[in-house]
């Protein structure tokens, strides 16, 4: 942030505020960003529309692609609500109470972030696969989880488990428990407090966590590719379908699907920007911390 000029005096100069350093740094960063972050986004659309809009649109006529769209949306519809519920439960016990092992629990909640999706996929295989921990039992009871939709859902649950919790925990800690305590004194029960006090206070963080979780579920590749078994028209989600088409030398269709997932990602980022702005307004009105400030304090 630039400093306000003191009354009458010259503007105080901080490190790097000289015109040369400033221009050089901003210019270099913008150039590199255009190359490494903007160019890939443009390339996706350029490749998808390389043979015109007709070829682009035709990509979506493929029944396998349509199935993949359906499966991806279906997976997100199951995974996002479950991880929203988990995020609320985890944030409630971690933010509102102190108990032994609380820090360990926080680390455990965030653990999936540090684990390669490939490891997650392999780990699930060792639980539900034929030679896995529960494999023989599942086979005896004729339950199919591996290389089927349940495995895709389970792997996605693992990979996105921390998203909502991570947004809620620092904010709920920063907000404190005074309002909830007041509600208890007034005779409100737990569910009522959650619904009428806590959730409204954290609604923006909750929305943002859910949006991120959704984008990640729809785009998850590594974990799902291990557990899905890539069966055409049965276990292909959109990212898997992209790889399949790319290997089939059907680049236009691969990029066409990629434009959908890119759109999901960009909408998520726009939603983030909007949510941050609304949250800043709420914070200004109520004097409470914003999601951003709370996250900072949480570290």
């Amino acid at each position: 942030m630039a400093l306000q000029p003191s009354s009458g005096g010259p503007r105080r100069i901080r490190v790097g505020d000289g015109p040369l350093a400033r221009t050089l740094l901003i210019g270099t960063v913008l150039l590199v960003t255009a190359l490494v972050l903007v160019a890939p986004l443009i390339a996706i659309f350029a490749e998808a529309f390389r043979q015109g809009i007709g070829a682009y649109a035709a990509s979506f006529a493929d029944p396998d692609t349509r199935y993949a769209i359906g499966l991806t949306v279906f997976t997100a519809l199951i995974v996002v609500p479950i991880n929203v519920a988990f995020g609320i439960a985890a944030a409630w016990c971690i933010a509102k109470f102190r108990f032994t092992g609380r820090n360990l629990l926080v680390a455990l909640v965030e653990l999936p972030f540090s684990i390669s999706p490939i490891i997650a996929g392999v780990a699930y295989l060792f639980v539900y696969g034929a030679q896995g921990l529960l494999g023989p039992w599942l086979e005896a009871h004729d339950i199919k989880i591996m290389f089927a939709v349940p495995a895709i859902i389970l792997a996605s649950l693992f990979v996105t488990a921390p998203f909502v919790a991570r947004e809620l925990i620092p904010l709920m800690i920063a907000q404190g428990s005074e309002e909830e305590e007041a509600a208890v004194t007034l005779g409100a029960g737990g569910w009522r407090i959650l619904r009428l006090v806590t959730l409204p206070n954290v609604r923006f963080a909750l929305l943002y966590g859910a949006a991120l979780c959704n984008a990640r579920v729809m785009g998850e590749f590594g974990a799902v590719s291990v557990v899905a078994g890539n069966i055409r028209g049965q276990t292909n989600t959109l990212p898997l379908q992209i790889e399949l088409l790319y290997q089939d030398n059907n680049a236009i269709a691969a990029f066409a699907i990629a434009t959908i997932l890119t759109a999901v990602a960009l909408v998520t980022l726009v939603a983030k920007a909007i949510i941050e702005r609304l949250d800043a307004r709420r914070a200004a009105l109520t004097g409470e911390p914003t999601v951003k400030v709370a996250a900072k304090a949480g570290h």
């Binding site: 519920a85 988990f86 609320i88 439960a89 985890a90 409630w92 016990c93 971690i94 509102k96 109470f97 108990f99 629990l105 455990l108 909640v109 653990l111 999936p112 684990i115 490891i119 997650a120 392999v122 780990a123 699930y124 060792f126 639980v127 896995g132 921990l133 389970l154 649950l157 693992f158 488990a161 428990s177 909830e180 305590e181 208890v184 029960g189 737990g190 407090i193 959650l194």
Partner: peptide, 26 residues
């Protein structure tokens, strides 16, 4: 504030099933 046993129970159960069980199996 109510809800510690329930929220902690859900959190631990979920983490055990979704995170710890597969990592343990690995």
């Amino acid at each position: 504030i109510p809800g510690l046993p329930l929220s902690l129970g859900i959190t631990l159960l979920y983490l055990s099933l979704i995170v710890l069980l597969p990592l343990g199996a690995l």
